[in-house]
């Protein structure tokens, strides 16, 4: 146990990094869902982000290019989801599942050529001057890779966007009451398109983190459920970017704890430790749900296509 206490800062630091892919995807999903569209295809978008990041980085030797490619591919998948659910008014859950199928299949096919190839051009951790020297906190928060910093910065930015900018206000209005937004002349469909594409791009970025920071190569199915966990984080966070940060770190820490325990040789089968990151979100949802029952917090028009002449 003492050894574990000694490891705690280490685990927390690893958790902050490990939570990044989930954080990025969850922030994107918050924007998407706040506009009234549910995209459960995150898992498929993230895996496409992984494979495109690897392919482009191997080709151009620049992780930034890889990240850009992942975001572009994520945005395109978001566009696809938007077209199917907003314009064609298809079922959002089925379309999301189709994205998962498509992403899994395409990534496997596209990744055949780069399977197992090591990626050398990565985002490396950089200690932030001065901040990294802070006792305790410095080690946990300020010795990370640029993507992790980006995720941490993005949370308040998304919050500011939603609360203090007009596009953000429109996004929220489209998710709360599209007919109101429409009656004021706000382009509901356009706003939703934008939100879903942005959400897809962020999920793509989350996917890019995995090969460009964590496991420097392409492995089939390497997201291993991160997209689904991001969905759980959004619910836990009650569509609030700040709480999403908390949720993602919690998830990251649990994952890191599992790895560390395995590394120090705790006599628990690895499978049980690997279960933790999947059980933890359920446990957290149970605990938080029982405390705040009956509150209407989800965007009111979430999951509903908007049609002007529907009455």
């Amino acid at each position: 146990m003492d050894a574990l206490w000694g490891l705690l800062p280490n685990i927390l630091a690893a958790g902050v990094a490990a939570g990044t892919p989930v954080l990025l995807a969850a922030l994107g999903e918050i924007i998407t869902e706040r506009s009234g569209v549910l995209n459960i295809g995150l898992e498929g978008i993230m895996i496409m982000g992984c494979v495109s990041a690897v392919m482009v980085t191997l080709d151009l030797h620049s992780p930034l290019a890889g990240l850009a490619a992942a975001m572009a591919v994520g945005g395109i998948m978001g566009l696809l989801h938007a077209a199917f659910t907003i314009t064609l008014k298809g079922n959002q859950i089925v379309s999301g599942l189709a994205l998962v199928l498509l992403g899994s299949g395409l990534s496997t096919m596209l990744g055949k050529g780069v399977l197992g190839q090591p990626v050398f051009d990565l985002f490396y951790p950089e200690a932030l001057p001065w901040l990294a020297d802070l006792p305790y906190v410095g080690g946990i928060f300020f010795k990370h890779d640029p993507l992790t910093y980006g995720g941490i910065l993005l949370a308040p930015l998304v919050w500011f966007f939603l609360q203090h900018t007009r596009p953000g206000l429109l996004v929220r209005a489209a998710g709360e009451s599209p007919e109101t937004a429409d009656s004021l002349g706000a382009p509901v469909a356009l706003v939703r398109y934008g939100a879903v594409i942005a959400g897809g791009a962020l999920a793509g970025a989350g996917g890019a983190f995995l090969p460009l920071v964590q496991t420097p190569s392409w492995v089939e199915g390497m997201t291993s459920g991160s997209g689904w966990i991001a969905l759980a984080v959004v619910i836990f966070a009650r569509w609030d970017p700040g709480k999403a940060l908390l949720g993602a770190w919690l998830y990251g820490a649990v994952q890191a704890l599992g790895f560390r325990l395995q590394a120090v040789g705790v006599p628990i089968p690895s499978q049980f430790l690997n279960m933790l990151p999947y059980l933890a979100p359920i446990a957290v949802l149970v605990i938080t749900a029982s405390r705040s029952r009956g509150q209407a917090i989800a965007p009111r028009a979430l999951g509903l296509p908007y049609e002007r002449e529907s009455r």
Binding site: N274, M275, L285
Partner: peptide, 30 residues
């Protein structure tokens, strides 16, 4: 969980896929 606490069944049912997968993995490797 859905009926009592209103927890979205999409997320819980899906996450349990991974848990059961690991459980079966533990058994057949162990």
């Amino acid at each position: 969980l859905r009926a009592r606490l209103g927890i979205n069944e999409i997320v819980t049912t899906l996450l349990l896929n991974y848990v059961v997968g690991l459980w079966v993995g533990y058994l057949v490797y162990g």
